[in-house]
């Protein structure tokens, strides 16, 4: 678990990060969203001590990071930044192997780990490994950046606008890959972004940051349904709120028993995917199946519509 306690960073008397207290659960993705200058990057960099806090502290699994040697701390935390910062004078493979090398792994171990990561990110080790960064496409460079951060099996991964330099099609793919990898490895990820859609798509929890403070720190559905401040509401956007909420909710919990004709939707699909399928094929109810193809029940259009309705005022 990562925890901030009254964390503050000030430059020339101005608090860039202002008295933030929060904690992030192990094995989840937390997205920190804010406009530029909101202090989100500073916040992230205080975790691996690229920036030292003015007051307050960061704890990882109960230990204050300022008590750990900073070099050892950074080697144990993965870090991915916008533009990736790949070392231009090293091959992709050597870039990936940098932390294991610093940690003094044996060459054979480093090579095996590098190849394993390249395959995990769907890159051919023999083909991509020996290339220099300037010979990589944007998508490839981004994946090498992620692989480098994961090389020494860190429990924590910090990501600062990791998809910012990708074009939209590749970005969606990279986001899906990240979710997949996070499920597989169980890494705790803190992701900084200015894109609310990205945060909603990836985050198990979302912290909205403004002027160095957390305006709201909540699960995505709560951010959409009950924005705590006008600023959060503006970031989420007024338009398409219902559809956005539907896209955050999986079909699973809204199942009814029964049967329906036609192709099924997956139980992990979102309600908005299901609705879209209904509109497209002119059906009111769809059969739902799990990954193996077993029928689980049906989803009704009326249930989807009520799931997207604004919660009654309390």
């Amino acid at each position: 678990m990562i925890a901030f306690e009254a964390l503050t960073k000030s430059y020339d008397g101005r608090n860039v990060v202002d008295n933030v207290t929060a904690s992030f659960a192990t094995g989840t993705i937390t997205a920190v969203v804010g406009t530029s200058g909101s202090g989100k990057t500073t916040l992230l960099r205080m975790i691996n001590r690229l920036i030292e806090p003015t007051t307050g502290c960061v704890q990882i699994n109960g230990r204050d990071v300022s008590e750990l040697p900073e070099v050892a701390l950074r080697r144990s935390i993965g870090y991915v930044i916008q533009g990736y910062g790949l070392f231009p004078h090293w091959t992709a493979a050597r870039n990936i192997g940098v932390v294991p090398r610093l940690l003094g792994w044996r060459t054979s171990e480093i090579e095996a780990r590098t190849a394993e990561l390249l395959r995990l990110l769907q890159l051919d080790p023999a083909q991509i490994g020996p290339r220099y960064p300037h010979q990589l496409s944007g998508g490839q460079a981004q994946r090498i950046g992620v692989a480098r951060a994961l090389a020494a099996r860190p429990d924590v991964l910090l990501m600062d606008e990791p998809f910012g330099a990708l074009d939209p099609v590749i970005r969606r793919q990279a986001q899906r890959d990240l979710s997949e990898i996070q499920h597989q490895l169980g890494t705790t990820i803190i992701l900084v972004t200015h894109d609310m859609n990205e945060a909603l798509r990836l985050g198990n929890a979302i912290a909205v940051m403004r002027d160095g403070r957390f305006e709201q720190f909540a699960p995505p559905s709560e951010i959409v349904c009950a924005p705590a401040t006008p600023f959060v509401a503006e970031l989420v956007g007024e338009e398409g709120r219902a559809l956005r909420l539907l896209s955050l909710t999986p079909v699973g919990p809204h199942l009814r028993t029964g049967e329906a004709p036609g192709d099924p939707v997956a139980d992990t699909a979102s309600l908005s995917d299901a609705l879209s399928e209904m509109i497209w094929t002119g059906r009111d109810r769809l059969p739902v199946a799990d990954r193996s193809g077993r029928r689980l029940g049906v989803i009704e259009r009326a249930d989807i519509l009520s799931a997207g309705r604004r919660a009654a005022p309390v």
Binding site: N48, L50, V71, A72, L73, R74, R75, S76, Y79, I81, Q82, G83, Y84, G85, L86, F87, P88, V98, V99, L102, R148
Partner: peptide
């Protein structure tokens, strides 16, 4: 030396000499 590269070098845990 590009800022992102210098930052990465620190972030992966290199000592100033490295």
């Amino acid at each position: 030396v590009p800022g992102a590269v210098a930052l990465s070098a620190r972030a992966v845990g290199m000592t100033p000499g490295q």
